[in-house]
């Protein structure tokens, strides 16, 4: 196994083992979506209209909740120091850890979204597109979260600070993710332009975010 693959496999295994981290994220997603109708009322037409937005916002919160896992544990127990003396350049290290976060957070959340869509009366034929937008958009979510996680490494109240730093950066993802789905349901226009924008944002984040995260890691390790 190459070092990069070894690191990826290890991070995914840790997410499975450490206190059911994946399960908690999925549970959080379910809770956030499930309590919203109590505030809005059970009107199915209203819920269907706002479903894409609610599903996306809840997904961002759930992904953010687990974002400090990307670097925090490795920083606390000294693993990050040894990782840094390894053969991988720091940006690649950050990229692999972001990828592991995507595999253990973005992918399960995207796969769960249709079930929650049922709760919100999202039309069945919108489900494939919903999942597709989430698969396209969640890489950006994980890779940008890694920037926040590395910036807040070892700080007090890092979780809240992380949310404050990163949520504004999610605005474009949210806009294009939600409008792809609602364009498909109510229009106007084709869902393709926002979908392609979303994909572009993800691809750019995959390339650029690890550079920022690596720079932040370097300062955090001093």
């Amino acid at each position: 196994m190459s070092p990069a693959v070894a690191l990826l496999v290890r991070d995914v295994k840790l997410a499975w083992r450490e206190g059911g981290a994946i399960g908690v994220v999925l549970g959080f997603y379910l809770v956030v979506v499930a309590i919203m109708p109590f505030g809005l009322g059970p009107d199915l037409n209203l819920l269907a209209r706002i479903a894409p937005g609610m599903l996306w916002v809840a997904l961002l919160l759930a992904a953010l909740l687990s974002a400090d896992r990307i670097f925090h544990n490795d920083y606390e127990d000294g693993t990050l120091d040894v990782l840094a003396t390894g053969p991988l350049p720091l940006p690649l290290l950050a990229a692999i850890k972001s990828l592991a976060h995507w595999l253990t957070t973005g992918v399960p959340l995207a796969l769960m979204a249709p079930v929650l869509g049922l709760l919100l009366n999202l039309p069945l034929d919108a489900m494939p597109l919903l999942v597709a937008t989430m698969f396209a958009g969640t890489p950006a979510v994980s890779f940008i979260a890694a920037i926040g996680a590395s910036l807040t490494l070892g700080l007090r109240r890092s979780g809240l600070l992380l949310a404050l730093l990163v949520l504004p950066l999610y605005v474009p993802v949210l806009i294009f993710g939600v409008s792809t789905v609602s364009m498909n349901i109510v229009g106007p226009g084709s869902p393709w332009p926002p979908f392609l924008m979303l994909t572009a944002i993800s691809l750019a984040s995959i390339v650029l975010a690890p550079l920022a995260a690596a720079a932040a890691l370097r300062t955090a390790m001093r």
């Binding site: 059911g20 399960g23 908690v24 379910l30 499930a34 109708p37 059970p42 199915l44 709760l119 009366n121």
Partner: peptide
């Protein structure tokens, strides 16, 4: 899915179970 009283209570119960397990 309709936000019917019985089903909704059942959903909240499910959430309580998830919390316990977690």
């Amino acid at each position: 899915w309709v936000w019917d009283a019985r089903l909704t209570s059942m959903l909240v119960l499910f959430l309580l179970y998830l919390g316990l397990i977690a």
